[in-house]
């Protein structure tokens, strides 16, 4: 697929870690395209490099070699500060363990990415309330994470991920800590964000049922793409 029409275009991506004297190559020349509006599921056994690939796509880490284009811009060549700014503007992150700040209310957690914008306090609050409303937690805005269930915490994390209106949602096992019912609710919410709000999603999961919500599945094994299915 052409890099110009893809939201994310990855070419010959290699990531090597240094473990003491030993160099470990985790990703061996990955090529991958994620079109706009895609919902792609990244699967594979533990240690296959799923999270590493996700971190590189999300700009949390830098590749050893290779090229990552996002919306036509190379992010693998960005400086650390540019990458930070780019992340704030384009990517929403959803993690397995929610990663909410425990001392802040749901509303304040969702407002966090907006602190980096020029919005006024009232505008930040308004936008955060809308995001929480979208995930069905308007009545829980003052609750702290410890006062919410796992599913509700993940909804807050989704609200935080979408509040700055990013193009791509990067989800690392978003249902890994949830029961089946909550997991289905979260996956339905992600599907809704994909279909109704046009958010592109890349999701790592071990759960085949979760993978069924994606438009296509990409499989990784030992740092190499082995198969893609629709």
């Amino acid at each position: 697929m052409d890099a110009l029409v893809s939201l994310v275009s990855i070419r010959n991506l290699v990531k090597t870690y240094q473990r003491g004297p030993e160099k470990i190559e985790v990703l061996h020349g990955i090529d991958l395209d994620i079109p706009r509006g895609d919902f792609v599921c990244l699967m594979g056994p533990s240690g296959s490099g799923k999270t590493t690939l996700l971190n590189l796509i999300g700009g949390l880490d830098s590749p050893t070699s290779g090229q990552i284009d996002f919306d036509g811009k190379r992010i693998d060549q960005m400086s650390s500060s540019k990458l930070t700014q780019w992340r704030a503007n384009h990517i929403g992150f959803i993690f397995q363990s929610y990663n909410l700040l425990p001392m802040l209310s749901a509303l304040k957690n969702v407002e966090l990415p907006l602190l980096l914008t020029k919005l006024t306090a009232a505008q930040r609050r308004h936008n955060a309330e809308i995001a929480l409303q979208l995930v069905g937690l308007k009545d829980r805005i003052k609750h702290k994470p410890s006062e919410l269930s796992g599913g509700q915490q993940q909804r807050v994390a989704i609200a935080r991920a979408i509040v700055s209106d990013p193009q791509l949602l990067v989800c690392d096992e978003p249902t890994g800590d949830l029961d089946r019912k909550s997991a289905d609710e979260i996956l339905s919410l992600l599907t809704q964000l994909n279909q109704e709000h046009g958010k592109s999603i890349i999701m790592v999961t071990h759960d085949p049922k979760a993978a069924e919500y994606a438009k296509r599945i990409v499989r990784l094994d030992k740092g190499t793409l082995v198969a893609a299915s629709a």
């Binding site: 949390l60 500060s81 930070t84 700014q85 992340r87 704030a88 425990p102 990415p113 980096l116």
Partner: peptide
């Protein structure tokens, strides 16, 4: 440390 990692993930600079 994980919370500071999250802040950086969200776009807070070093």
């Amino acid at each position: 440390i994980p919370e500071l990692g999250i802040l950086k993930t969200l776009g807070f600079s070093n």
